[in-house]
């Protein structure tokens, strides 16, 4: 799947068409600018309110994709080959027709997704991006020191585990498929989906163990 990997070194030149605001995105930013200038709102307070209302719906869609991949080898295969079509088959499509790429964690490889722009976040499967995901320090540090960033999230990986950092763009967005936790053989798809957290699909966490989810 390395053909999808966007090396970080070639973002420093000639990538000037990655960013685009839709009319509504720009209108909301305009309101935010004027209201901030007038001292009526401050962006931190707005982020805090958004966080409060962060919906559980979005990440649930992604969790169902992951749970299906765990239980259905054919679907997993399809997801690997053509994530856009496999995800769309479950009824989850991006409104802007962006392409999806699923990256699978294995025993020796852990995947982590970054991007500072909320326009690069796969809302259709993950819901709203968390505030930290949009913060510039997360992206820059995740690229330089992914192991350190993961440790801050409480995720300590074995030294020999390889970490791949995937840089989302507006055209191609990544979904991490975490490893299926041990001791889940007798769970059905719906129960498995409960173990798949938003962070595990960004790569800053792992899927929950059945004990931890209770």
């Amino acid at each position: 799947m390395s053909e999808h990997h966007h090396g970080h070194d070639h973002h420093d030149h000639d990538h000037h068409h990655d960013n685009h605001f839709t009319d509504m995105e720009a209108r909301v930013k305009a309101l935010e600018t004027v209201l901030t200038e007038k001292g009526l709102i401050d962006p931190a307070a707005i982020d805090a309110i958004v966080e409060t209302y962060e919906t559980k719906i979005g990440p649930r869609n992604g969790a169902r994709v992951v749970a299906k991949a765990w239980t259905d080898a054919e679907f997993a295969d399809w997801l690997k080959r053509d994530a856009t079509a496999a995800i769309a088959s479950l009824g989850y499509t991006g409104r802007q027709g962006e392409h999806m790429c699923a990256v699978f964690n294995t025993a020796d490889t852990h995947n982590l997704v970054v991007c500072t722009l909320c326009s690069c976040y796969p809302w259709s499967v993950l819901g709203l991006p968390p505030v930290w995901y949009k913060a510039p320090p997360y992206r820059s540090r995740a690229v330089i020191d992914p192991r350190g960033v993961l440790a801050e999230f409480g995720l300590r990986l074995a030294a020999e585990t390889r970490i791949r950092v995937w840089d989302s763009t507006a055209e191609l967005r990544y979904l991490v498929v975490p490893e299926r936790p041990a001791g889940t053989d007798d769970l059905d798809e719906e129960e498995l989906a409960d173990l798949v957290t938003r962070d595990s699909m960004i790569g800053t966490g792992l899927a929950l163990s059945p004990e931890a989810s209770r």
């Binding site: 839709t22 995105e25 909301v28 930013k29 707005i46 958004v50 209302y53 976040y121 709203l128 991006p129």
Partner: peptide, 9 residues
């Protein structure tokens, strides 16, 4: 996300 921002503002 912009919908959540508009709501929050």
């Amino acid at each position: 996300p912009w919908q959540a921002s508009a709501f929050a503002m």
